[in-house]
Simulated assay, not measured.
Amino acid sequence: MPIFQVILLAIVQGLAELLPVSSSAHVVVAEKLMGLDPSSPQMTLLLVMLHTGTMFAVIVYFWKTWKEAYFSSMEAFNHFAVRVLWATAITGILGEAIKKLIEKTMFHGAPKAEIENLFGRLDLIAPALAAAGVLILIAGLYERRQLANVIPEMIPKDGLGIGNVTFGQSTWMGLVQGLALPFRGFSRSGSTISTGMLVGATKERAERFSFAMAVVLTPAVVGIEALRLEKAHRAAISAGAPIDFHGSITASLLGMVFSFIAGLVALKWLSIWLENGRWYLFGIYCLVASGVVFYLHTKGF
C-alpha cells in the first residue's frame, strides 16, 4: 500500500477517534473511496493498529484525570479495576456470541466464514451509524434537559467529572461495547458514553471510563487481527500467492505513529465539544453520515 494512503487513513482515524462518530466507519469509507478492500486481513490489521495509535494518544491525554479518579488511592484503583475488568469480560462474551451468530446465519455455514468479511459493506455500516446517531441524540437531549434543572450551588466541590461509574453503569457500558465490536459504524465511544449518561453517569465519568475500556480491550483485538493476518499469510503461501506479511506489519506500524500524532492534535481542541452540552449534535452528524454512506453504497462503493 502506498505510504500516502497509510498516512491519510491514519489522519482520518486520529481526527475521528475522540468524536463519537465511529472512526472505523470513516476509515472504511476512506478505504473504499481509495479502491481498497476493508475486509482483507491487511486492512483490518491496519485499522486495529490505527486504533492502537490513538489509544496511546488517549492514554497521554487522559492520564492526569485517570490518576485523579482511578489511582488516587488503593480503594479507588480496586473499584476501577473491578469495574473495567467486569465490563471487558461482558464485552468479550457478548461480542463473541454475536460474532458467531452472524457467521452461522449470514454465511449459511460457508467455509472460512469470518465476520470481518462484512466490514467493507456500506449497506451495513449505514444503519449502524444511524443506530448510534439515535442513541447519541437521545442521550444528548437527556443531558440538556438534566443541565437545565441543575442548580450551580448544588454541584459537588469535586465537580461532576471526578469519581467512578457504578458497577451497574459499567455493566451497561460493557454490554453496549459488546454490541459495537462486530458492527462497523456503531460508534464504540458514542454508544458507551451515551449509555453511561442514560443510566445516570455524568458525561465526564462515562467518557473517561469508556476510553479506559478501550485501552484494556485494544491489545486483545490487535493480537486477534495479527493472528488472522498470519493465518491468511500461510494460506496464501500454500496457494502460491503469498501476502507481503512484513510489509503489512510495517505499514500498520507507520499508520499507528501517524494516528497517534493526529489523535493528540484532535484531542487538544475537540474535547471542548464534549463539555458544553452539545453531545446531541454528534447524533445528528451520525444520522447525516448514515445517509451519505448509504448513498455511496447505491453508487457501487
Rank of each mutant, 00 (worst) to 15 (best):
206 A>M: 01
299 K>R: 12
69 A>Q: 04
49 M>R: 01
204 E>C: 09
226 A>M: 15
91 T>R: 06
96 E>K: 11
58 V>Y: 03
71 F>L: 15
110 A>T: 08
12 V>A: 03
285 Y>R: 11
253 L>G: 03
260 F>P: 00
127 P>W: 08
133 G>K: 06
287 L>K: 10
136 I>Y: 06
200 G>W: 14
206 A>D: 00
252 S>Q: 03
281 L>I: 12
198 L>F: 13
264 L>Q: 12
271 S>Q: 11
148 A>W: 05
64 K>C: 07
244 D>P: 05
95 G>T: 10
164 N>F: 02
25 A>Y: 06
115 I>T: 04
183 F>L: 15
117 N>E: 08
51 H>T: 03
79 H>W: 12
174 G>S: 11
28 V>T: 03
222 V>K: 00
13 Q>P: 05
139 A>R: 02
78 N>L: 15
88 T>D: 12
255 G>A: 08
117 N>G: 06
159 G>A: 05
137 L>M: 09
13 Q>I: 07
194 S>A: 15
278 R>P: 05
42 Q>H: 06
147 L>V: 08
52 T>W: 05
279 W>L: 15
242 P>C: 12
1 M>C: 05
201 A>H: 02
140 G>R: 02
89 A>M: 13
24 S>G: 11
225 E>Y: 00
182 P>E: 06
74 M>W: 13
148 A>C: 07
299 K>C: 03
52 T>S: 11
10 A>M: 07
120 G>M: 05
248 S>M: 03
133 G>L: 11
172 W>I: 14
243 I>V: 12
36 L>S: 05
59 I>S: 02
299 K>G: 05
213 M>S: 10
223 G>P: 04
34 M>I: 02
88 T>P: 03
211 F>W: 05
118 L>Y: 04
110 A>C: 07
116 E>I: 00
232 A>Q: 01
253 L>M: 13
259 S>L: 08
159 G>D: 04
251 A>K: 00
174 G>W: 04
62 F>S: 09
120 G>T: 07
94 L>P: 05
145 R>I: 08
160 L>G: 09
189 S>E: 14
200 G>P: 11
202 T>D: 12
182 P>K: 09
157 K>W: 07
243 I>E: 01
214 A>C: 14
95 G>I: 12
217 L>Y: 02
163 G>N: 12
217 L>D: 03
125 I>D: 02
98 I>S: 10
67 K>R: 14
219 P>N: 06
20 P>C: 10
80 F>G: 00
282 F>H: 08
275 E>T: 14
185 G>W: 04
56 F>T: 03
184 R>Y: 07
177 Q>M: 12
146 Q>V: 12
127 P>F: 08
32 K>D: 01
223 G>N: 06
24 S>V: 10
63 W>Q: 11
127 P>K: 09
139 A>C: 10
176 V>N: 03
203 K>W: 04
6 V>I: 14
172 W>Y: 13
282 F>I: 14
140 G>L: 04
65 T>C: 08
238 S>N: 12
200 G>L: 15
193 I>D: 00
180 A>I: 01
3 I>S: 05
3 I>D: 06
156 P>M: 11
262 A>C: 08
43 M>V: 01
135 L>S: 06
128 A>H: 03
87 A>D: 01
68 E>K: 13
201 A>E: 05
121 R>G: 07
1 M>W: 04
148 A>N: 09
261 I>T: 09
10 A>K: 02
